[in-house]
Amino acid sequence: MPIYMDFHDVPEGITAKHVAEMHQADLKIEHKYNCRGLTYWCDERRQTAFCLIEAPNKKAIIDLHEQAHGDVPQRIIEVNDTIVESFLGRIVDPEKSKNTKLNIINDPAFRTLMVVKLRKNTLRKSSINTLNAALRGYTKSIVNFAVAHEGRVVKQKTGYFLISFVSVTNAVMCSVKIQELYNMVITPDIDFRIGISAGIPVTKRESIFEDTIQMAEYLCDVAKRNLSISSEVHDLYESENQNKTGQNPSINVLTKSDVDFIVQLMEYTEKVWTNSNTTAIDFGKQLGYSKSKLYRTMIALVGKSPNGHLKNYRLRKALQLLDKQTSNISEIAYKTGFSSPAYFSKCFQEVYGMLPSNYIKQTRN
């Protein structure tokens, strides 16, 4: 049977003990609905609770909760148990709770997520060998830093890491260590980026932690500096470190309005980047900014003009297609929103230092 995670917005005054009682009520009658309660998470401070349940469908979960205690979940999503464990550390009740009558678990499902990306910056022949060697070294170090700071590596592939932390402080300190490593062993051919955000596992999206992952990736992809965090992460870090003073100058803290702008920018970019007719004026209209205000905001937060941002986004997509070697240069040019193969080749050479045709030859050798 599929496994689901549901979200309960817990009323004020309801404690972890009350949630444990409701969980026990579920377990007593779950067989009537062909369900099996695996575990739950409760966060008294944020007034949220999440249940992990094996069930035939979402309706069975709603009916079970309705009959057991009347607290119907606000949202239910289907999940993979392995993915849940990689984010949250467990898919059954923790050992310390199993011998108690109620299995009271005051364990928040709120997590801080860090995305690390290492991307090609230039494409000289020597840079590919340098990149591969650097990636191997950085990969081992990043994983070691994550483990040392009690992080869980949720996803890892070439040049990409998604890491989950219970502690905001551990996430921030881990990111600083990773950045320090990069600064000590600077590799000019690699663009090194880190984005950190925080949130709950179930929202209006269909996948677990989808909003939080997306935010971390957006900060990683477009924020002006190499290490960026949301204002929420910053506030949580400050609350965990009240006796410490001073802000790490290497960390770029984005305000809520900055984050909202970046989200709108990237959501629109992802919709229109394949359309060669898209212009800076279109971005301004969509985001509700005048031409001059959009330019100033983009330079301040992203470090690029609207046209420069769109061009770089398209080129990154084009580079991914070139690496797959499933399309020719002309096809890639049009797929990625360039008006002609000639213009695509010109832009590609300006950014990466070689023509796409030469890059293809180089990667095949």
Rank of each mutant, 00 (worst) to 15 (best):
H234W: 10
N328F: 01
L287F: 10
I61R: 05
L227M: 09
S127W: 04
T122R: 08
I61F: 05
A49K: 00
P11L: 01
E12L: 11
T326N: 12
L355Q: 13
S340E: 03
N243W: 08
N132A: 12
S327I: 07
E66V: 14
R36K: 15
T255A: 06
D9Y: 15
P2M: 10
L102D: 07
A133D: 09
V176G: 08
I190V: 00
G151R: 01
T187R: 04
H69V: 05
D9G: 08
S357R: 10
G159R: 02
A342I: 12
R364V: 10
K32E: 13
N129T: 15
T48G: 15
K32N: 12
E240N: 06
T278M: 09
S207I: 08
Q214A: 08
V92Q: 12
V168L: 09
G159V: 04
I77W: 00
S339D: 04
Y237D: 01
S175A: 09
V351G: 10
T139W: 01
S345R: 09
D258N: 04
Q320V: 13
A171L: 02
I76Q: 00
E350L: 05
N275S: 10
I29R: 03
T100E: 06
S239L: 13
K293G: 15
F161G: 00
S345G: 00
Y218N: 13
F165T: 00
V115I: 08
V272H: 01
T326C: 13
N358H: 08
N183I: 12
R205S: 04
V19G: 04
A49S: 02
Q286L: 13
T15F: 01
G13H: 05
K98G: 10
T112V: 08
P108Y: 12
I329L: 02
D191G: 02
V272S: 03
E12N: 14
F87P: 02
H65R: 09
Y268E: 07
D43H: 01
T158K: 06
R314E: 03
